[in-house]
Amino acid sequence: MSTDRFADYGRPRRVDGGLRARSARGAIGRSWWSRRFLEVLESFALGTRLTRGRSYARAGQVLRLDVAPGRVSAEVQGSRPQPYQVSIALTPFPAALWSRIETELAGQAFFSARLLAGDLPDELEELFVAAGAPLFPTGVDELTQRCNCPDFAVPCKHLAATFYLLAEAFDADPFELLHWRGRSRAELLDQLRARRAEATGAPPPPEPDGPPTPDDAASAVDVPASPAGAARALAGLSATPMAEAPDRFWSPPVPLPDRPPRLATGPDLLLRQLGPPVPGIGGPGLLERLRRAYRAFGPADR
């Protein structure tokens, strides 16, 4: 190992296709819960390692990030050829506690609704606190951090990079935080569905099968494609090969119907609906500048 010591201070090896932090500048983490999670890290870690961890995260040095109950494991490419194995473990909540929590969650559709819509309502945190099981680690002693790099410090920059990417995974899908705590998204939804069935007196529904729909398929790695672009609305139209109708080559195959009434909306309604984007790409300032554009789109006499 000692022969490799100097390599630790060299530049990390470039990585193609690594996981890359989404935020390019400033703080990582946009939701209150991911920032909350990072506060824990930032409360005990040292400045330079955090900075270097952040730049590792942004440079895509993290090759793999897996969330499992009680354990997050990752591979981080350092300066050595072999990537470092990183893990951050905590004690998952016991089954009995989860059962209590699930009863509470199933009792109010509010929780599932917000979680499935991509939010972690702060009431959920209160609920865990009330059950005696805080969702966020309160101190470093709750976490078992491992990295097989030679750096003696904990967390090292590889661990720090993993923390940052984990925070972003929580941003994209709050279910990942619950997964780390012991319940995967699928398990949790199954449990909630079963309890809901008890509450409504309906027969427990079978598990969903077939390919998941966009609503229940959101996960940390899947980034949904943009809703914009005409292709989305025009997918699945039946296609007539040209060879089939040489006699109707020049004219519309079916007449164009009358134009239906248009959606009456103010030109900037979309912006109001979407709210500001993340600070990493401009935040509310970007929204204001785009609003200028949408006003220019509107009819001239307005």
Partner: peptide, 29 residues
Amino acid sequence: NSPQETLLAELGRASRLWPDLDSALRTAA
């Protein structure tokens, strides 16, 4: 494939636009 989760997710999104809706989501179903 999962109409219940779809409905929940949709209600969650709608409640972001119209927060009055939250108060109706306090029951199981």
